[in-house]
Design a binder for these strands. Structure first.
Lengths: 184, 184, 184, 184
DNA sequence: CATGAATGAGGCTTCATTCAT
DNA sequence: CATGAATGAAGCCTCATTCAT
């Protein structure tokens, strides 16, 4: 799966071939089918494992006792930092999510699979609203927008503008998003 | 190119085969190479044509004489409406942008190709700041975030939650984004 | 046909495409089928025209009144010179002769088509034998060998060793061949 | 590679298709790419293997202790005999050498690849000159001419005049060539 | 557990050739 | 005369997948 992540980051989703993944992993081609049923299975497993890893890494670094706005700002900074430390994983994850499909053409890891993330995000927003640090707004729309802002940040910092300071960007983004939802 | 858009929307980027595109267009396979040098050429041309079409359609429907916040809110509603009328085009465009790559692995239509869009967006934001309707914030970060919010809206409304009212979503999104940047 | 010669010389027999020939000739693709029935027809016509041109050019420059050995030496020098002035034609001709085939797989311009050349050559040799300047040997074998020596000379001088002096080579070759057939 | 040789002999260089080669070999098409990187790779490998086989077969059958002229005459007879026993290999080899090209258009197996053969031939000629059995002549030109004479002999005997007695031809050719280089 | 030879489907692409204009 | 849009066959090649060892 680590090799798959690297290949995805380097060659894109449809540039990935299991032959090269096996080579990169230093094992024989056939071994892949001992551990994964399918190419799609490998993709899905890789995506889920990567997603979990990343989510945990962020969650663990946050102090949930702080006020919600501070948590959000800290989270954005943490995520921006991943741009440097986990660029490959982020890219790979994005590509699987956007490309992996069922045979009938429907998405396999729909945004529904982000559901867990969304719900965690939404409950955080709602907590802020309850605690009075956040004003009233649609938490679902905000969760989605938040995710979109992050995706774009990762794309902007990771691939096209690697020289930009992640913390800077994260702070400016926090300024904008928090201004939009914080109780004034 | 119309057939390519449909195939992209239905089968995803790496599910697209020129054989099926030709079938769908009702022409012979070989004809594709009469008009496009390459599969990549077709993708790129399709993306650019689609992008232009969409941008124009939105730009033409906006009244630039209005205050900037109103323009932004109107634009978001227009775009959300595209979810219904141009779902295929939007999906296809997204897939090409995220998947088309140079032989060396680098992106072909990088976010740089969105540059024109970004700059238009940024100048709109700056106009709002000058006119006093928008507060001070980083216009580049905002332009990117704005694009991300739109992408996610399109994904959310278009593919996974087609029953949600686009205008509703657009309004809620406008509430959040404008709260983040409007002078209070 | 001139364009075909150039393409053959540059791209080889199976690298030649009528599309490029037409481009190179500055005419449209379809026009080729006004003047030639077939790709093979074009090849055959080109070969025959080129062969005639070259044969005439050499024949005209020789003084048949001289003794046969002198004619042969002069002919070799003339042919070696063609390496510089008509390299493309020689290469093209060779490629057509070696590659053009009937649908059933048999050669289309067999060595039989060289027959005319062979017979001219043989009669020259016989004349030398009659006149007493050449000793007794099998004229058919010699005609073939002579042709082979020339082919190799053209390949050696033309493609792989263009810096070698053609006259030098021709003289050394004449030394060897004439020693083999001249009456001592 | 054996199947490739047969196809080359039967259909010519650009008549060869890997599909038919695979069919002829009784394996699936895809297997070819398990063992060869490329069509060109297959051609090159086939050529080199065939060249080695043939060279060895001739070299082993010669008694190098004999005087050089005898060796040459014996070699010509051996080679002429190959016309019957290895006609396919000889034809295939010739076609590859004359047609295989680099992407940039230059030959891939240039006459340079015959270099080894040339040098062996030249050293044999020089030995003859040292031993006094051969007169003074340019050994390089002679090596090339010798090769050309052989190529033509193979074409003449193999494809167009299969009823001619190879030994006869070889002897007549030896008569001519040896007369050209033997010390009188 | 692991290998890698073998397969077969399918993809992109080229090209000779036709034909309406 | 000449064009170039259109076709269809065929080619090379990649790749997921299987299976005997």
């Amino acid at each position: 799966m680590a090799a798959a992540v690297k290949e995805l980051a380097d060659c894109g989703y449809d540039g990935l071939s299991l032959t090269r993944v096996a080579e990169r992993a230093g094992v024989s081609k056939g071994l892949i089918w001992h551990y994964f049923a399918d190419k799609d299975d490998l993709m899905e497993s890789t995506a889920k494992a990567t997603m979990t890893t990343i989510r945990d890494r962020i969650a663990n670094s946050l102090d949930l006792a702080e006020p919600v706005p501070d948590i959000i700002r800290a989270a954005l900074r943490r995520i921006a930092a991943l741009t440097v430390t986990h660029r490959g994983e982020l890219t790979a994850l994005n590509r699987i999510v956007h490309n992996l499909r069922h045979p009938d053409g429907t998405q396999r890891l729909t945004l529904e699979d982000y559901e867990e993330t969304y719900q965690a995000q939404e409950s955080l927003f709602r907590r802020g609203q309850t605690e009075g640090t956040l004003r009233d707004f649609d938490t679902r729309v905000m969760a989605i927008t938040y995710q979109g802002a992050i995706d774009m940040m990762l794309g902007y910092l990771g691939t096209s503008h690697p020289h930009i300071n992640p913390d800077d960007y994260a702070d400016k983004l926090a300024d904008i998003l928090l201004a939009g939802i914080q109780r004034s």
